[in-house]
Amino acid sequence: MDEHSTRYTVHGGEKASEPQVKSGLRTAESDSRLTTSLCGIKLNSPILSASGTYGYGKEFSRLYDLSLLGAVVVKGITLNQRAGNPGRRLIETPAGLINSIGLENPGLEGFISQEMPFLREQGVPVIVNISGNTPEEYAALAERLDEEPGVSALEVNISCPNVKQGGMAFGVTCDMAAQVTTIVRSRTNLPMIVKLSPNVTDIAGIAQAVEAEGADCISLINTLLAMAIDIHTRKPLLKNTFGGLSGPAIKPVALRMVWQVAGAIKIPVIGMGGISSWQDAMEFILAGASAIAIGTANFVNPYVVPEIHAGLSKYMEEQGVKNISELVGAARINR
């Protein structure tokens, strides 16, 4: 068996077709049972990439056709280029990963000139994740991206735990979250997704505050604030002391928060946090997520997106469901 012979089924329980292999690239047929829409954007599937785990799509485009995704959510962009955090950036934990990347990115104009030309060619909606040190920075990012061809929506990151100013600080109180939402809303007509931090006492309250200020969609969860200590040096392993925990370890917490938020607001929810299989993805959809995002699992299994796509297709087939949107929130009704 060589590396091209790994089989996975495409297009549900129908004839298991051999994935097309050309220079290592695997493609799968689209499946109408998985098409859906989010804030008026038509999605080929409810599967998105989670910001910060997918770069700007280039690397994974060498492994499979990006149009399997509903949308590419790109690595977070800031107004100016950022080098990211010094020192150690990754700590593996049981079924988890703590990161302290610190929003390393080429900045708004760097992103537009270096990454957008490629992204526009992929036949998949592009959602740009934005972060600022001040509400005005978020607004400036939104205004510039509003006029950029090929940008389908913005994901407003008020939940990054790895930057000293801004970031998560905007996502932990209703007032601050509302303030950022209001100013971004006033400067863009693009659909606005607000990405929430789980590091709060009342996530449903924050979601409601953001909805009231005109957000079109909520995505959650960003990483859980976490740390690790080196017992030999007796110091925290990360220079910033805290980082963000992701991976399968956080999935039950993320699912619970998606459930709480989906029950508290009318706008759609993108669920994420530790999703590593189609079964995980299905749980989030049943909890009320209209779409789901794959994060850390992309690092563990670079083919996780096509595999989840195939698994969801098969499940639709077996369950006799015409479209996956029929199952959004189904677990809430069937209790």
């Binding site: 770069g55 690397e59 994974f60 950036r89 990754l90 593996e92 990347i101 690092f299």
Partner: peptide, 16 residues
């Protein structure tokens, strides 16, 4: 370096 994706997307394996 400690590494996650190995592909250049996670930006975890840096040196100055």
């Amino acid at each position: 370096e400690i590494m996650a994706c190995g592909l250049g997307v996670c930006l975890g394996c840096t040196c100055e």
